[in-house]
Amino acid sequence: MDGVILLHGLGRSPASLWGAQAYLEMRGFATLNLPYPSRRAPVDELAARLAPRVRVFAESLDGDVHFLTHSMGGLVAWALIARERPRNLGKAVMLAPPLGGSEIADFIAEKPFLKRLFGPAILDLTCSAQRGPIDFPLGVIAGEKTLNPLLSLLFFRGPNDGKVAVERTRLPGLADHLSLRVSHPLIPWDGEALRQAVAFFRNGAFSRATA
């Protein structure tokens, strides 16, 4: 059986991925929906804390271990894979990841009060943060619907999900990329996003066919 590790975003909890977890389990995947203190440490430290639980779960499977992440959880997964790549690593699907950073994170990082509120990891979400190479099969699903058009006009020039610009979800090395008309907080609950994630886990590419 293949398994999927789920990682939530900044300021969220595993509850934000309960729908995705149930969807995956109904389709035959074992799951591990990990909690982590997203506002208390930088991404690399968060990855180090999670590594032992990821290792135990990966080694318990007789198939591949995949990752499904939301927002900053994608950066945590990336750091985990760089730190201690599972021998049975399969594929990763990141929902609305700030791979190239977020202009909103830039704004928060410049305001001391907001920076303290969001925690050290906010610096890892800025547009100037350094990224390593993508050396694993990675598919990204971006959102291009905002719940706050005025705020998006202030921070973004092109399509965005209210938190991350679509163009900043792209980096060289992606196996596939897809944009959907869904907002940042709702993308983990979107049925089409989840259908596409399963397609990527199974085939290494998103499905362009109608559901």
Rank of each mutant, 00 (worst) to 15 (best):
A193F: 02
I141T: 03
N148I: 13
A129G: 07
L171T: 03
M94H: 03
P185Q: 05
L147P: 00
E84C: 08
R157D: 06
A96C: 15
R202K: 13
D44C: 05
N203W: 00
G19T: 15
P133T: 11
I122Y: 11
P86E: 07
P97C: 15
A77F: 03
W18F: 14
L150S: 08
F136K: 01
G9L: 03
G3T: 10
S13G: 06
I187N: 00
K91H: 04
P42F: 05
R85V: 10
L17S: 04
L180G: 01
P14G: 03
A79W: 08
A48E: 12
R157L: 04
F136M: 01
P35D: 14
Q196H: 14
P14W: 03
A175E: 14
E192V: 14
E103R: 15
R116L: 15
Y23K: 03
A79L: 11
G158K: 12
R168F: 07
A41G: 13
L125I: 10
R116Q: 14
R49S: 11
D124Q: 10
M1P: 14
R116M: 15
G11K: 06
R53D: 12
K91E: 00
M26T: 12
L10V: 12
F113K: 13
L10Q: 08
G73P: 02
V140F: 09
G204N: 11
R27E: 03
V56M: 10
A197Q: 01
L80Q: 04
G9E: 04
R87V: 10
L147F: 02
L178A: 02
K111N: 15
F29E: 00
K145S: 04
L125N: 08
E110N: 14
P42Q: 12
K91F: 01
P149R: 13
R181G: 02
L95S: 05
L117F: 15
P97W: 04
L154R: 13
R85M: 11
L180C: 04
I104W: 00
P172Q: 04
R170W: 13
Q130A: 15
P86G: 12
V43Q: 01
S71G: 06
A92T: 05
A205H: 06
R202C: 00
L95M: 10
R83M: 14
F57R: 03
L151T: 13
K111P: 01
N160H: 09
H184V: 09
W18V: 11
T210D: 15
L61G: 02
R49L: 14
P185V: 12
A92G: 11
P120G: 09
P159L: 14
G204V: 10
L6P: 00
L150G: 02
S16E: 09
S102Y: 03
W189S: 15
A121I: 03
V54N: 02
G28K: 12
D135V: 06
F67Y: 09
R181W: 07
F155T: 06
F156C: 04
L147A: 11
L117P: 05
L68I: 01
L99Q: 07
G173E: 06
G73S: 08
S207M: 13
A142R: 02
F107E: 07
Q130T: 12
L123D: 13
A82G: 15
P133M: 06
A58L: 02
L6Y: 00
L32T: 03
N88I: 01
L153G: 11
G158H: 14
F201M: 03
I122G: 09
G173D: 09
G119F: 08
S16A: 15
D135W: 05
G143T: 06
